[in-house]
Write a protein that binds this DNA or RNA. Structure first.
Lengths: 190, 190
DNA sequence: TACTATACGGAGGAATCCTCCGTTTGCAAG
DNA sequence: CTTGCAAACGGAGGATTCCTCCGTATAGTA
């Protein structure tokens, strides 16, 4: 789904292979334990030395961002698909729900990554902007249809949905997540 | 303001004194660095050994909770004061804003503590429940006045405000915090 | 096959956490 | 005031995790 994992410039075959092994191990670990992954464990799971992990991902943040990158790309694609298929408000609401699902799946790493300030022009920065812009199209459609207030913007909406995920992280309670989300949707309606 | 720091049972004078020194140092540190405090630093600032710190607060969570306890008590008092002084909706909104201010001040520790599952009957659990109940009175009043939807409850409302604080932690942007909060308020109105 | 730029791997130093236990001290009883 | 001891102190040090550094191995090329 979406453009396969972004490959860096020309590298030796073993480097490329290890890069992907590490990323795969990190994705699994993040899904299980969230941002509290132990980097030495990732390296062991990937079957590489800790030095290799640090060469590919110099900081913890780098690894987490790479883990999240594919999801950002997929969320962008999903936004575009929804724009083609579904009525404006339903599309917007459906996409925001996807944000929460992805966020919960990644144990809120998505939210943490989204909100961090990224280097200008970095892959993750580009992916986040692309995702947000794709969402903004959905918002614009719903506003043009007169269904959503004009003074809402996508940045606030994304932050709020991520906030719901963050605040519900320990007390995993889908019932409450739904009612909070519904409350937010009520707030953006015209 | 509010009942002074909750003192434990009969203790030796030095124990009581150190308990308070540690707590004071922890409050300062949390205000500055949030939940990432280094416990050895706290002990040094308080002028006690690390062993003493751990005797009084066996786990990091214990210390953070104690740090937050006074704030919870004060928020309870503020809710009661607002109930006496102000129109129902304004009181509710004002109190929720206080929640966010306190949360931001404590670097989101409040939210983290509130959402953690506490031992039944522990001081922090009691304080959180007391605070929430006091807030629920404000909500009830606004609902009775027909200004707020009946299907809203205080748990969701608190989580949402804490979610806003959490999601805005890095990108400290008061403008956006306000607009998200306003959006939530719009969502609870009738 | 030989050469070298590239990549690998893990030992080990630093930061932080937390426990354990020998030493000190408040305070109550005599 | 002394004495006795439960209560409290404090910090050395083991465990965990992070991250760097550098000697070793190898992919790709000529």
């Amino acid at each position: 789904m979406s453009q396969a994992s972004v490959t860096k410039g020309p590298r030796r075959a073993d480097a490329q292979r290890n890069y992907e092994l590490i990323l795969a191990a990190a994705r699994t670990a993040v899904a299980e334990r969230g941002g509290n992954i132990v980097l030495e464990d990732i390296a062991r799971d990937a079957g590489v030395g800790i030095g290799t992990l640090y060469r590919h991902f110099p900081t913890r943040q780098d690894l987490l961002e790479a883990t999240f990158l594919n999801e950002a790309l997929e969320l962008k694609d999903r936004a575009r698909a929804l724009a083609d298929e579904t009525a404006s408000l339903e599309a917007l609401v459906g996409w925001l729900r996807l944000q929460m699902d992805f966020g919960a799946h990644g144990r809120s790493m998505g939210a943490a990554v989204m909100n961090a300030k990224h280097t200008e022009g970095s892959p993750i920065q580009t992916a986040c902007l692309g995702m947000r812009d794709a969402g903004a199209v959905l918002l614009r459609r719903a506003q043009d249809d007169g269904l959503v207030r004009e003074d809402i913007d996508m940045i606030d909406l994304l932050r709020l949905t991520h906030g719901i995920v963050l605040a519900s992280e320990q007390a995993r309670d889908n019932q409450r997540v739904d009612s909070m989300f519904e409350l937010v949707i009520a707030g953006i309606r015209r």
